[in-house]
Write a protein that binds this DNA or RNA. Structure first.
Lengths: 227, 227
DNA sequence: TTAAATGCTGACCGTTCGGTCAGGATGTTT
DNA sequence: AAACATCCTGACCGAACGGTCAGCATTTAA
């Protein structure tokens, strides 16, 4: 009665495969499941039981791999931060504002599309007052924004765009793109779609690029006669 | 041993005040506390215990007033929907696009500022897949957006603004304004502020109005020579 | 073949969850 | 002052929570 399962062929291991293949697969499965559950219910609302079920593993196994709920959550946040940091890594004042801003909008849009659960996980963390990310926001991310803001300012000084507040502009792009991941349920409900197609995303990207660039009076370097 | 509290002066009633004054105050207190807690932790992550503590009442009292966790949550959502529905209630094709769009941005910004917890509560609900608001999104709100989208289209036809997709435009305004409530923690962290002042909000509103109106090529009716 | 190391999980722990309810406190009516 | 209706809450309930751990299964090393 205490142990009813068959002695072999249990778990996800199935047949004896050498090395850490199962390990890697389980870990990946857990991280994906956890991202979904944390994104949907927030840190407190998420349960390890739900994560384990979605990963197709016993709860104990999740804890065996990840140590603790907190550790799993932090690991997911860090993974998302890495993805974000890779964005728009190297830009300079010499670059073309139109190209850079379009690239920013486009890559941010793709980040939201490629990792919607991760985007929502991040949003849920911020929504809850960023208890785990305070340090990151006030440190790394702040520097990231500051550096890019200074470049935008210099572009404005050179007459390549209107003298708008660069930080508000970055927030505008952030929010407009983030919206399609975080508020997906709303976007789909209002537009009556089941999902956003590649074509939809391309259309939205074009729309945002056009409106924001025009709104900031961005002139492509090619359009400007003199340096 | 079973009951150690003093026979009188318990609860929030304190001194005998006639009528439902205490009732109304308690109800208001509970709703405010619940909005905070639900916004921060989502539906599942919120606990009645935490809500009760923030309201300064025993948990049983919260259930006595509100019936159930679900009922309390739904009531908060409905209150927020009412606030939203009051927004930009009566506009027509004959109105001035610049005025209407600015009023939309401004009033939406004020909604986020006046009811940040409500805004975040709404955001958390959508983030979690809108389990309680599916119907509202696919019904009322969809109609709301459709009606305004048609007016924007007509403005475009009359040459009062660029022929942009009106739904994407509404989402752009929505996201840009919503951002300052939902991502408040991020905005404050990055800008190094403790809170957004009235002046900040006014500045952001002006920025958004300028960029979005210019980006959509909105011309004020006053600027247009002929009808 | 055996011993040690590692992978894995059912059973269990203390705590907290949403919700119920008996019954005392209070307000109103007679 | 007695009867009644309403307000309120401490004590309790079964369920679910995050986390621990003994102990079996499997792989690796000797």
């Amino acid at each position: 009665m205490t142990q009813g399962s068959a002695p072999t062929e249990r778990g996800a291991r199935e047949q004896g495969e050498a090395n850490g293949v199962t390990r890697r697969r389980n870990e990946r499965e857990i991280l994906a499941a956890a991202e979904r559950v944390f994104a949907r219910h927030g840190y407190r609302g998420a349960s390890l039981q739900a994560i384990a079920e979605q990963a197709g593993l016993p709860k104990s196994n999740v804890l065996y791999y990840m140590g603790s709920k907190r550790g799993l959550y932090v690991r997911l946040l860090e993974r998302m931060m890495e993805r974000w940091n890779a964005l728009l890594d190297d830009i300079s004042v010499e670059d073309d504002p139109a190209e850079v801003l379009e690239a920013f909008i486009r890559s941010k849009m793709q980040l939201s599309r490629r990792h919607p659960e991760g985007s929502r996980l991040f949003a849920a963390e911020i929504l809850g007052g960023a208890p785990f990310l305070q340090e990151y926001l006030r440190g790394e991310l702040r520097d990231w924004v500051e550096a890019r803001a200074r470049i935008l300012e210099q572009w404005a000084e050179r007459g390549l765009m209107d003298p708008v507040d660069p930080v508000w502009l970055i927030f505008l792009i952030w929010s407009a793109t983030q919206h399609y991941a975080d508020f997906e349920a709303q976007v789909l409900g209002i537009t009556g779609r089941n999902e956003l197609s590649d074509k939809d995303v391309e259309e939205i990207t074009t729309f945002l690029t056009r409106v924001i660039l025009k709104g900031c009076g961005v002139r492509s370097r090619a359009d400007t006669p003199a340096g």
